[in-house]
Amino acid sequence: MNMPPNYRGVSEPFTLTSNQHATMLDVAAWFLPDGSTFPPVDAVDSDGSILELVLQELRPWRRTIQSCLDSAAEHDMGSYLQVLQQDDLEAYEALRTLVLGRYLTAPEVWAALGYTGRRPSPIGVGEAERWLSPDLLQPVLDRGKIYRPTPSG
């Protein structure tokens, strides 16, 4: 089947200037200050490849995020984000998604959280029956039909 061209992906690319990138790391450090259990926020995505993926998926938020990063650079980060959360929740959430999305997409963070990511897991023969045995449905069957019969139209 010859399909017509797809226009879904046509939009302006989403990249950050060096200043915006530096501010993004400051935002990330505010949301995810270093601790002892999980990888430090500035240690993940060292080559920037995850950020690139994240930005492409957040293209609908490009202007909001870029504008917020430009503004945030001129303020104390904690104060700025607290005010933003009160005054423009949508923009605050966009920034949160950017920095949490970058961090929580990193494989080393997945490993620390015990997350394997999405892997194909074909359904095995008899698997559906195994989850229902032995007799998990028996009480339901014993009770019988529960629908309300209706007068036919």
């Binding site: 017509p4 061209p5 995850i50 957040l58 997409t105 999405r118």
Partner: peptide
């Protein structure tokens, strides 16, 4: 338009982020 199966993000690393943006 038509959406090709390869455009879906579900088997990619960036899947979850896409739910907040291009696949909102």
């Amino acid at each position: 338009d038509w959406v090709g199966t390869a455009e879906y993000t579900g088997n990619r690393q960036e899947y979850e982020v896409s739910m907040y943006g291009t696949w909102h």
